[in-house]
């Protein structure tokens, strides 16, 4: 597939499909398409993610990934938008190359890309809105995408890119990590935690350790 970003305020991606060319996306993200582009239903199971794993991940993260995807088949154009401000990145993955993309940010991808869901870790956030509306453990769930093929995703706000060397660290807020390579490791920390009522909660952050590429986004 050939993909290009259109617009900058709430960008969309315009995908050009050759005859027989395919792209996968959630049907809710479709902005428009030419009538020559056909739609078929795909399930996450057909991509290797069963319903059980999907439900477990949804229960952990509190977000719902769509079990049913749409497969668009060319020839023609189809456009996707996430209905929010941000930047669109179009990344071509080499065979075996993987990225871990925060859930809720994937726009579309080639059928040759292997899709999976992965828990990046469990972190304590005293401000998290969990079941009892108190602080609690949160799970960061990511889409793990492995090449070969093209992946298109969108950030909230602007994207800041870092290439961390082995052992090099970066500190981010819990919500700011957009993408990381599998070689990157994460560790949760509460900064400034004390014993008085004013500082007993602390500030939850993620320590991100290299080596590997990390993308942080500026919006929530």
């Amino acid at each position: 597939m050939q993909a290009e970003q259109v617009g900058e305020i709430a960008p969309s991606v315009l995908v050009t499909l050759p005859p027989g060319g395919k792209v996968l996306a959630s049907h809710e993200l479709m902005l428009y398409k030419e009538p020559s582009v056909k739609m078929q239903r795909r399930t996450l199971r057909s991509l290797g993610v069963g319903m059980g794993k999907l439900i477990t991940m949804g229960a952990l993260s509190g977000q719902e990934e769509a079990y049913f995807l749409a497969e668009f088949e060319g020839p023609g154009h189809v456009s996707f938008s996430r209905d929010r401000g941000g930047e669109i990145r179009i990344q071509t993955l080499a065979p075996g190359e993987s990225i871990r993309l925060k859930e809720g940010h994937l726009l579309c991808f080639d059928p040759t890309v292997h899709y999976d869901l992965e828990v990046l870790g469990r972190f304590y956030d005293p401000y998290a809105r969990t079941g009892n509306n108190q602080g609690g453990w949160i799970y960061l769930v990511a889409n793990r995408l492995t090449g070969p093929g093209t992946v298109v995703y969108q950030s909230n706000g602007n994207v800041l890119s870092f290439a961390l060397k082995p052992g090099e660290a970066l500190r981010t807020s819990m919500a700011s990590l957009l993408l990381s390579e599998p070689t990157v490791t994460l560790q949760g920390q509460l900064l400034g935690q004390g014993t008085t009522p004013l500082n007993q909660l602390g500030l939850p952050v993620l320590n991100v350790y290299g080596p590997g590429r990390v993308l942080v986004h500026s919006g929530l």
């Binding site: 617009g7 969309s12 479709m30 030419e34 009538p35």
Partner: peptide
Amino acid sequence: GHGNILSFTLAPGETMEMDHGA
């Protein structure tokens, strides 16, 4: 236009399919 505006000129009989919010 909410977000970006995409402009088209449709020829007679030319069709397009879209999300209703678009």
